[in-house]
């Protein structure tokens, strides 16, 4: 059982938890994720380790309420316990002094981009961060991101904060005006797909973090299969970060929809049973 030490609603749909998990915090690095299971009947879902505090023995996660499990998770409060927390999983980000980097975080993807931007900044890179969301009400961590970036650009689809644009617009501005050594992009699959399209025309190496559906996250089921440069890879053990220019995003997006009818049933069933 893993205790929630802190809960903060970052927006209507996005919640932050600090979870007590000392041994995972000791090992966690930027780019790692973990699996949790809310209760005995619950499913295993992957979430990124958005931050960690080795001294306090906590990991931080930021999640968006999209379906049954994440909605249920959102009903947990400080002091409540999560049944299972497993990690740190996946490969951590490759951090080096690349020179000039741009970190792009879309929606809830801002959370996983944060520790990477911080590590890249600490490694001596000049970091510009672009964070985007549908509107101001779901944007979060502007200040946190600003502290680890040399420049911060904010975009919203409706213009309620920052520039009214999608993240690829300011990205393209930067790419066309200066030499960039690396782009890191995390967000919805479509966003990553279009970021990669943009960077490909400028031939800038781009790292993305994929969010395939997972179960065990140890390489044991193959449910998280993706195609990278025509080769099948497992997101959980070979990723979650990959060279974005090699990712088959259309396949990823199709695979993310594999259980749509069942997810629907789960949500309806859940509501009928009193919102478990």
């Amino acid at each position: 059982m893993y205790k929630i030490l802190k809960k903060e609603d970052l927006s209507e749909q996005i919640t932050l938890f600090d979870i007590e998990a000392g041994d995972i915090a000791q090992k966690a690095r930027a780019g790692n994720f973990f699996i949790l299971r809310t209760h005995e009947q619950g499913e295993r879902i992957p979430l990124t380790i958005a931050d960690f505090d080795r001294g306090r023995g906590t990991i931080t996660t930021v999640f968006q309420k999209v379906g049954k499990t994440t909605h249920h998770l959102g009903t947990f409060n400080e002091g409540d316990y999560i049944t299972d927390v497993i990690g740190p999983l996946g490969n951590h980000s490759h951090i080096d002094n690349f020179g000039r980097v741009v970190c792009v975080g879309g929606g809830v993807g801002i959370a996983p981009v944060y520790p990477i931007a911080r590590a890249l900044k600490e490694a001596g890179n000049k970091v510009t961060s672009i964070i985007g969301a549908r509107s101001k009400s779901i944007l979060f961590w502007e200040e946190k991101m600003r502290r680890v970036s040399d420049d911060l650009i904010i975009t919203t689809d409706d213009g309620s904060c920052g520039t009214k644009a999608v993240v690829t617009v300011p990205l393209e501005d930067i790419l066309s005006s200066e030499k960039v050594d690396l782009v890191v992009a995390i967000g919805p699959a479509v966003m990553m797909k279009f970021v990669c399209r943009t960077t490909a025309t400028y031939n800038v190496k781009t790292i993305v973090s994929l969010n395939s559906i997972m179960i065990d996250a140890t390489g044991m089921c193959g449910g998280c299969r993706v195609e990278i440069g025509g080769e099948t890879k497992y997101t959980c053990v070979d990723g979650p970060e990959f060279d974005g220019h090699l990712v088959d995003f259309d396949l990823l997006m199709k695979r993310l929809q594999a259980y749509i009818p069942e997810e629907h049933t789960a949500m309806c069933g859940g509501k009928m049973n009193g919102g478990k």
Partner: peptide
């Protein structure tokens, strides 16, 4: 994950 008891258990199966 006891998907055969879905949706009582949360994990779906095709």
């Amino acid at each position: 994950m006891k998907a055969y008891l879905f949706p009582e258990y949360d994990t779906p199966i095709k």
